[in-house]
Amino acid sequence: MMLKPFLTSLLLCLGLCSGIAHAHKPSDSYLSLTIDNSGKNIVHGQWDIALRDLDFAIGLDSDGNGELSWDEVRARHADIAAYALSRLSLASSGRKCDIKPGKQLLDDHTDGAYTVLMFEADCPNVDMLTVQYSLLFDVDPQHKGLLKLVNRQGVVSTAIFSPDTGTQQFKLADADRLQQFLDYVKHGVWHIWIGFDHILFLLSLLLPAVLVSRNKKWEAGTSFKASALDVLKIVTAFTLAHSITLTLAALQYISLPSRWVESAIAGSVILAALNNLYPLFQGKRWVVAFAFGLIHGFGFASVLTDLGLPQSALMLALLGFNLGVEIGQLTIVAVFLPLSFLLRGTWAYRRLVFSAGSMLIVMIAAVWLVERAFNLRLISA
């Protein structure tokens, strides 16, 4: 009775992954608000928005050649400012702040080029600030706005805007550290659940956990304890590895080009799935999980490094985000392991889920690898 919903859920996940070939780095923008420390009721703003997102929303590629030039972006500066600032509202003491756009620059983030929109907001009182954020929510419900707010004393607050949390209020005299921590826990959970390449890598390693290899054939395992122990080793190795590089990258001790990282992550998914079809690392999947987990950690870190937080705020965000990633990962494992163990002896699990599923993962990841390595777009997202 449980076979049909299990297969349906797994195939739905694989289908979603195949339809989102650029799914690793979610759409994020980076909003920085700094309260003027000279006594004026002025908020200085800087908003980094991905050019790919703006092109999707308002169309920047005027010649339609699939590439954005500086002239194309510069010609639309007024439209970019109007579009973005119509989706941002600041208010204090019950009155809206008057926002005036400033100059625009270009900057490179880990996942591509961003426009940097400078602006100033004249507010009646900035002891309490209400921020309403709705950029791209109408076209991309997965979009997140990451806020860095610096008060007059230099204390940094952070927040994450989503369609469910589009309006937030900040008491500038003090930062709610617990709420910031919980926000990043939530963002870490969400990041792993929409990070389809991470999910497929993890699933590729988990699929054989309920099976045993005898005479080059996969057969149903007989012990749930043995399967659970195998999963524990894999998850622990992956967690330890990506936590190491996530921390090192977020603290800016190590930096790798995003294109290299994303390509390597796609390659890791291919190898993990191929190992199910042609065993290369028999009994050593935890080693694979650790080795490639180091690469996946750099992918996790991109959202924090691009925010540019100071050391004190970064540590809080790092702890919360990493904990959220682990919660999201363990949730997947908690659902997958018992169901797969119950169905391990069926033909459908061994042939459809394990063999055909692994082959499908290889094909999906191969598309990701080509796209990321050569900066192509083979599948429309």
Rank of each mutant, 00 (worst) to 15 (best):
S62G: 02
S27N: 12
I192R: 10
F170W: 03
L205E: 13
L342Y: 04
G357Q: 02
A366W: 05
A381W: 05
Q132T: 15
V131H: 14
R372Y: 08
S9N: 00
D183R: 12
F137Y: 15
A266T: 09
A365Y: 02
P163A: 10
T346Q: 09
W193L: 15
G15T: 03
R177Y: 06
H109Y: 10
V370A: 14
E120P: 12
P101A: 14
E67Q: 11
L211I: 01
G66A: 01
V131S: 09
G154E: 06
W193A: 13
S268N: 08
A264Y: 03
W286K: 13
L105P: 02
I49F: 05
F341Y: 12
L33W: 03
P163E: 11
G324I: 09
K148I: 05
R95H: 14
F374P: 08
A241V: 10
P208N: 02
L206N: 04
S213F: 12
L12G: 07
R76V: 00
M359R: 01
R76K: 12
G195H: 10
F56R: 13
L205F: 12
S380I: 05
F119I: 02
V185F: 03
I361E: 06
T222W: 05
I42W: 11
R177D: 04
Y30R: 11
V210F: 03
L319H: 01
G64L: 01
V231Q: 02
A373R: 07
T167G: 06
H109R: 13
S380H: 07
S302A: 15
A266W: 11
F238D: 14
P257V: 07
Q132N: 15
A175G: 06
G59T: 03
A250C: 11
L337M: 13
L202Y: 10
E120Q: 15
P310T: 06
A23W: 03
L337T: 03
V287K: 03
R344K: 12
L318W: 04
L68I: 01
Y114F: 05
A121S: 14
S134P: 10
I254S: 10
V235D: 06
I42E: 15
G102I: 00
A228N: 07
A175E: 11
V150H: 04
Y278K: 12
S62I: 02
M128C: 08
K284P: 07
R87S: 09
L106H: 08
S213L: 15
L360W: 09
Y133M: 13
F56K: 14
K103Q: 14
I265V: 15
I199M: 13
N275T: 04
D138T: 01
F201N: 09
Y83V: 00
Q169V: 14
H187E: 15
L16N: 05
I234G: 13
A241I: 06
N375S: 11
I295Q: 09
A264R: 00
I270L: 03
S227V: 02
